[in-house]
Design a protein around this nucleic acid. Structure first.
Lengths: 210, 210
DNA sequence: TAAAATCCTGACCAATCGGTCAAGATAAAC
DNA sequence: GTTTATCTTGACCGATTGGTCAGGATTTTA
């Protein structure tokens, strides 16, 4: 039988464990160096595994990369899916920002992985962008637009508001090296300060002055 | 004589032209693929020059990279240096944001170059961060803090405000591939919409409600 | 125009790259 | 316990990598 990974069902315990180790290692490597800058040897070494053994579970570099992207994607999209159309606008927006910032704190590698892919022009994720992300964004932007039309939020272009939230939150994951240098101190404290600042600017910026 | 580039003075016209061609090409390549993901051959090809000839002007890959970083740095820092302590806070902040957004529009490769470097942990730029950027940021944050103390701006952590401005503006350069997919249309129009949104959120977010 | 400096190139090199393969080690099933 | 399927590895392959070098082409200088 072909011994390819992802054999739909019937996964051995060893298979389970090793594929996880590989994907964990691959996330670290790919998120730092991007697809082109990463090597299979690097991933194998980080996974504490020989290169041929790693290639026993995944057919090639690209397959590992895609697998990592897909495994990370859901986690990455979840905050936006949770935006509740029936909630209070200010609270919904803020808890969305909080969730995203929290993700930058707890899963910075995931953010960097996507950032690297985008920097290279998103060649291997374009279909995901158009197929999954775009409908989701369109849907949520319509919600935000309704809030605006109802006078609950200041009139801004919803999609650019979303960009702004993404940018401001993911920045703490993607540019951690820079931030570390410019504002040293305990990591948790930094994120607390970031949260305060984002809250002040976004909520004041979006809520109408009545 | 050693025929190394950067021979301080005495630069031939050919030298001038070729070094420029190399650095222009290197910026494009490095900004897309990062240091590790880029190859000298790639740069040479883009500069329309043989690899040995390219290496006649620069001693190696790393030297090209550093040269590109340094040439790009000033342009990248300029908007912040122009923040005028004696100006009107709202206007100064906004024109800073405008300058940064403008840079994302006209020089996206420069932004991506730094983004790539940060994603990899800023190994080759750490000294620049602490030596040049940090003092500048500290200085301008003090200015912002004074504005806050004078009641001209809402109380926020200045350095996190700066991060937020960086993030929101550079996002349009670094994630252009994503943005292109999610909000198609003329590039100029997108930047105009971005500008509107940033203006609304930042100014409303920062100016006290009196 | 001839000498000298600069510029440019094809051929080459060791190291690393992604990936293969045959064969041995280990675990599972009977 | 032995057969069978799964797992693991060292050795290897062609392609690409960063970089060198001897020598030829071109430009500058005197």
């Amino acid at each position: 039988m072909t011994h390819r990974a992802h054999n739909s069902q019937k996964r051995t315990r060893i298979q389970e464990r090793n594929e996880k180790r590989i994907l964990d290692a691959a996330l670290k490597v790919f998120s730092s160096y991007g697809f082109r800058g990463s090597t299979i040897d690097q991933i194998a070494k980080m996974a504490e595994m020989s290169k041929p053994n790693l290639l026993y579970y995944f057919a090639g570099k690209e397959e590992i990369y895609i697998a990592v992207l897909e495994r990370t994607l859901d986690e990455w999209l979840e905050p936006l899916t949770m935006l509740n159309p029936d909630g209070e606008p200010a609270e919904e927006i803020w808890s969305y920002i909080e969730r995203k910032l929290n993700l930058s704190r707890t899963a910075p590698a995931a953010s960097r992985l996507f950032a690297n892919e985008m920097l290279q022009g998103a060649p291997r994720i374009q279909q995901i962008l158009t197929g999954e992300l775009k409908p989701l964004v369109d849907e949520k932007c319509a919600v935000i637009q309704k809030w605006i039309d109802a006078g609950k939020l200041n009139p801004v272009d919803p999609v650019h508001l979303v960009y702004m939230i993404w940018a401001a939150t993911q920045h703490y994951a993607d540019f951690e090296a820079q931030i570390d240098t410019l504002s040293p101190g305990p990591r948790e404290q930094r994120f607390a300060n970031a949260s305060e600042t984002l809250k002040a600017v976004f909520l004041n910026g979006l809520l109408p002055r009545s």
